[in-house]
């Protein structure tokens, strides 16, 4: 296990290296470059000012030097200064990260809380109306694009019934119940997809488990059905579900961009969206890198945990 962990970590090095290079060099393709972006669209920069700024931003150095310099600083947590607002990028991101985590986490909890009972019941009542309804709902969750679902929910709950605010954010550490009202809709929208996937996963792995020999043995020995389910099958069936939810949790961090934009949720996604228009690449580079590292990290953690819980999986 330890050897495997070490190998996976070593494997991550080239991946992260490639990703940082991707994040850094991608923005070099931008027409005009960073200095052009600093100037309002109707202004013309004279050569004198351009040279001064190039020197100041270190853009006169070879591009590889710039890359390693950026990487070295980024490793120390210094992502530079926003081109537009001139604020430190690290601060801008850290200000927004908790809101994104809060939303993604809430969505995952919601997804699990709904998916596991629904998937289990669907498996136990296979091919009945209950099963069809559960599976139909999950197809709905897989199919309806989340931004349209968000619009429809706003239409119904904010504009129609006037139950929930259509947007905004309240810090849960200051007013927890006030924050619930704001986060219900974004959390549901964000949970829809993982919930659907997890329901299907629970159902199919539950069915797999129920067909296993030990279940027959237990039944033949007269153990009550609920005991078999809760004590044995569910526990085994949950492993793949939890795994996929873990992976989806990481993925949500990228997927929150649209949700955060619609609901005005001040997270990293909205930060990226807001800075894309201004092509503020220090901010974009920092935020994207953070999301990627988070994503890679969670993937790794989930993978390792999966193997820890389920030692039968071969360490290939």
């Amino acid at each position: 296990m330890l050897a495997y962990t070490v190998r996976r970590l070593l494997n991550l090095i080239p991946i992260l290296f490639l990703l940082t290079a991707f994040v850094f060099f991608m923005f070099r393709f931008l027409p005009g470059g960073p200095i052009e972006m600093m100037v309002p669209p109707d202004e013309v920069l004279d050569e004198e000012v351009r040279l001064i700024l190039e020197k100041e931003l270190g853009l006169d150095r070879p591009v590889l030097v710039q890359y390693f310099d950026w990487l070295w600083r980024a490793l120390q947590g210094d992502f530079g200064e926003s081109i537009y607002s001139q604020l430190p990028v690290g601060g801008l991101i850290m200000e927004r990260f908790p809101a994104t985590l809060y939303l993604a986490f809430a969505a995952v909890v919601l997804a699990i809380a709904v998916a596991i009972p629904m998937g289990t019941i669907a498996a136990l009542r296979k091919n009945t109306m209950t099963d069809y309804v559960a599976m139909g709902t999950s197809v709905f969750g897989l199919t309806v694009p989340n931004f349209w679902l968000a619009l429809m929910m706003i239409l119904l709950f904010s504009l129609g019934l006037r139950w929930l605010p259509s947007m905004g954010y309240v810090d849960p550490t200051q007013d927890f119940f006030g924050s619930l009202k704001h986060f219900i809709m974004p959390a549901i929208v964000l949970a829809a997809y993982p919930c659907a996937v997890a329901t299907r996963m629970t159902r199919s792995s539950m069915l797999d488990e129920l067909n296993k020999d030990y279940v027959y043995t237990a039944r033949s020995q007269g153990l009550p059905e609920w005991k078999i389910i809760f004590k044995y099958t569910l526990k085994n069936a949950l492993i793949p579900t939890i795994t996929i939810v873990g992976l989806l949790f990481a993925r949500q961090l990228g997927g929150t961009i649209i949700i955060e934009t619609i609901f005005g949720w001040p997270g990293v996604g909205l930060l990226i969206f807001e800075h894309i228009n201004a092509r503020d690449f220090p901010v974009l580079q920092g935020a994207v890198l953070l999301l990627i590292i988070f994503f890679v990290g969670i993937n790794l953690a989930v993978d390792l945990m999966y193997r820890l819980v389920n030692p039968r999986v071969e360490l290939s």
Binding site: P31, G32, M37, P40, P41, A278
Partner: peptide, 12 residues
């Protein structure tokens, strides 16, 4: 266009 694209497009 958004702001960045507009800046580049105008000057192109």
């Amino acid at each position: 266009l958004d702001w960045g694209q507009l800046t580049a497009a105008r000057k192109s």
